[in-house]
Amino acid sequence: MGVIKPVAAETALIEALDDATGWLAQLREATRMQGLPTRRNEMWKWSDLRRAAAGISTAGSMTVTGATGEVLEPADGETVELGVSASAGASAAAQGLVVKSGRSVTLVERYGGEAGSLGNFHLDIKIEEGARLERVCIHDETETGVLVASADIDLAAHAHLTQIALAFGGKLVRNETHVGHAGEHSEAHLHGVYLLDEGRHFDYTSSVHHTGPGGITRQLVKGAVAAHARGVFQGKFKVDRAAQLTDAKMTHRALMLDDRAEIDAKPELEIYADNVQCAHGNAIGTLDETALFYMRQRGIPLARARALLIESYLAEPLDFVSDEGMRDDLRARLQQRLRAIS
């Protein structure tokens, strides 16, 4: 396979990763060989990264607060906060995290990107046997930046993962999660909420690969998309022959707030075991006009009625956040964004 002729953003990213090692070196070489993914790549068909990165021609920098440069091994009960922000230009950073056996850890990631940024933050996470991780990803400050938050998560037996993403999108923002699921009483919960104002793009992509028997996976992703904005959901459950008695359910539901909104969804099940319970559901709808009229008839102005209805539609995945303060904070961010867009 020949090396592609790189576009400016690709050259800039390769330059930014000049002396990188590990995952970042792989990213550099993949970019050198194949370029940034485009819509011709099945996994990126609705989120053309090369196109979104057009106009970016310099290397930038990615600042990650809370990272030490070493693999993080948080103590039991600890909350790790990572603040990821990409400056204008192309940049990437990676971080490892291990939840040691039997520990329970919370990880909060806050993402931001300047205008003209192309950033990729990658997490490599191992959740050891009997350990628990609750992961909250907040994408509320990427504005017109382009950002990919990718994570590879290895879930051991009797381990527990809950992930909740709240996203307001950007020029293109993608939250991409790949879970290796050992089964054996381990559970993965991958939830998310996205609310996209005009011109925003958000992509929730995840895959869960069940390799051992008796694993549980739950997914609930809900979105609302305004005119000229685009929401993308790609969810995949792969169940190996060895992963008998897997119990996995995937649900994506989204609201078109305008005829000119776009929502693309690809729920996928790939099942090789014969004794499993796997289901997926996907529904795209619009705001209930009758409910809107009912609320307005009671005196609630149109914009407020819309905001209340959208909030009630979107809020459910946030209920999976176990910490009440964090849950209230996410709900408040959602309400604030709703006030701004409606």
């Binding site: 009758t290 009229f293 008839q297 102005p301 149109l302 209340l308 009630s312 539609y313 809020a315």
Partner: peptide
């Protein structure tokens, strides 16, 4: 006038089929 403007002036409609609004507690509404 918009429905909410008429409501504020004191017009009230008791619906034949009252509408369900999941997620919005009645008191808050």
């Amino acid at each position: 006038m918009a429905p909410e403007e008429r409501a504020a002036r004191g017009l009230y409609l008791s619906f034949q089929y009252p509408v369900e609004i999941p997620g919005v507690p009645t008191m808050i509404f």
